[in-house]
Write a protein that binds this DNA or RNA. Structure first.
Lengths: 212, 212, 212, 212
DNA sequence: AATGAATGAGGGTTCATTCAT
DNA sequence: TATGAATGAACCCTCATTCAT
């Protein structure tokens, strides 16, 4: 996302581009790909429609950049995690909590993923960068499982893919379907206590899923 | 959805309305609310735009009917379940399998829920019928849990809401995010074997979550 | 407007037709010919669209009936006037007051005439009935002028057409252009006192126009 | 309506905007607000629908601009009047003739006012500019009356508002209701001689209304 | 680097009207 | 007599996008 160019004009240009990208994240997140309008994005970025085409080429390419951006941001945040592998159970709890909180604090991550899936992943498929980004999917989880197995705490026949999906499911769904769930279950899942309870529940559940 | 009227014309009218509704389910499911075009729906229903307004009033009201319809269909299917409560663990496995298969076989249920949540539940909120439909959310799950607890198989401190969310999460997310997950994890989650494995995994996990 | 048919069904039919006509007067009066919608009329008449075509044939023919109706109503009201020709000045004042009050109390008469003129009289031209109705245009005014002339109160060279136009102008314009005038002149012409003052003014003016 | 911008493109833009405005005057004048179609206006302006929204925002806002435009044009024409106040009666005749001829030569002024009144002044009410324009309503008439009073020609108790309404009524109604009147009175008011006679009549009448 | 002007296709919706019973 | 069902044209407006400076 950063360019090497220096000079005042180049900096201004970079700022404009970043403004557009961040506006696009917000707008696509709230309105979806089809519903998000170019004009809405450009005005939120305090720029104008033409600039979007100047820097990104098309609405679709802008959305692809948005996808790359939110994945990269997630990866960056995850990379900052410092887990104590001498306590595998604690480390797993921390990882679950990290993912949970990331989804809670970045609703745009959730909604843009939902949007992209409604479009059957057609934008993601067009991005070569995304494939690189996804290379490290299990990078954080694998050492935890291996440490737990080495200590005899976790089962030997754990499928890391299933474990990853389990954690993601339990963190994602609550946030992605907050509105219909609250209505369907007649409770307010947006409440602080409800969220805190859920995090406790899924942390325990994840451990139950791994323990011998 | 059924009317008491008789006569050829009234029957034909009912068929027209049903055709539109089913076409709407398909189109909204594939294109989302914003992306789904009235003309697309009407031509798929072998009717014309005007009839949509004649029977449903607006695109938004049609979408609300679609929401009600898919919830009602789910409830009907669930109501047909005949579970053997003398075997609580088996009953739970059957319920998990039912929900899983329902999501797999009704991708429109998943995508329309996703769409509605992207719109922050604004359509669901406008439907008084939906609130009635959601009344029986725990109707099938509760007897299973109670039977398991009576037999001393399940823990006493189970939160039914958490249990429900757990099952739904594990069934929904895999289907809703199939595309980005397949790309991110570099595996094809749409494969038959992958799905079957996942069902086994979540059935086990659900039981681990309930057992003493 | 009345039919000779007897019997309950015929009476009901007549009532429906009258309901539609009166609803049409209201709607066309408020919305104009183009703006007035068939559905609006039929629902106000507590009938349905199809009946309008059943009884009147088309929107245009309905509007022609409305035109005929409001002219006939005006003529009927005018025919009830009983003027004292032994006092020509008083009789003229009464005629002016009658026309003024008719316009004030029947805003639909004013607005429908305005609408018809915006359409360049194309509907009126298609009505043979209207030409009959207009035959008696000067029927009330002429005797007054002749009586005044006979008494030496009014000038001999009075043009009855000009006199008629004068009175109509002074009564009509105030009502027809109430909104733009109130705004343009920065006064509220809809006020009771303003109206009463204007009637006094135009009564005097009309007499000044006729006196020797 | 004029901009300070220079450059070929800015000039072309101004021309486009003016073309649309003038086309709108014609179309709204002939078809009314509801009947006037956007496509009709844009094609008459040799532009396209989109530009109307680009420059004016909506059909309604365009109509408001049309209202402002015709009032401003009238004011400009009136401002060019050079009346000889040493001859108050002659000046009044000239003012009457000016207003009469303005209505005759600008039928769009009459029809658009009629249209706006059919809509109960709802557009005029939304225009802040219109209120300014109307400030000088009596600017031309007042000096004439005062000059006539000073010379002892006109009565002392003249109400300027009534005088203004009188002149406007007599000039407007003949033009606004030409079609129904011609039909109702069975004469052709559009004839040159008829118009000339009427101007003579109302000039005399106006003076009779003011003289001692 | 940045922007105002312009475009054509198509969006949801409404209209007057006719069909069929 | 009366009415639900159906239609196609058109209406206002918005969209993503390109042109020209």
């Amino acid at each position: 996302m950063q360019t090497r160019k220096t000079g005042v004009r180049a900096q201004q240009a970079d700022r404009t581009k970043q403004n557009i990208l961040q506006a696009a994240v917000k707008v696509f997140s709230k309105e979806g790909f089809t519903g998000g309008r170019i004009e809405q994005i450009s005005s939120l970025a305090k720029s104008n429609d033409r600039m979007i085409y100047y820097y990104f080429g098309s609405k679709e390419k802008l959305f692809i950049c948005v996808l790359e951006h939110i994945y990269a941001s997630f990866n960056q945040a995850e990379a900052k995690l410092r887990l104590d592998l001498s306590d595998p159970e604690g480390a797993l709890r921390e990882l679950v909590a990290f993912i949970w909180h990331y989804y809670v604090r970045h609703p745009e991550f959730v909604t843009i993923l939902a949007t992209e899936n409604l479009h059957q992943g057609k934008h993601a498929r067009k991005s070569p960068n995304l494939k690189e980004l996804s290379g490290e999917a299990f990078g954080v989880l694998r050492p935890i499982i291996e440490a737990g197995q080495a200590k005899g705490l976790f089962r030997a026949d754990i499928d890391i893919k299933h474990t990853y999906l389990m954690i993601a499911s339990l963190c994602y769904f609550y946030n992605s379907n907050l509105y219909t769930l609250s209505s369907f279950l007649a409770v307010d899942l947006a409440e602080k206590q409800a969220k805190s309870d859920w995090l406790d529940f899924i942390s325990d559940l994840a451990l139950r899923g791994l323990r011998c």
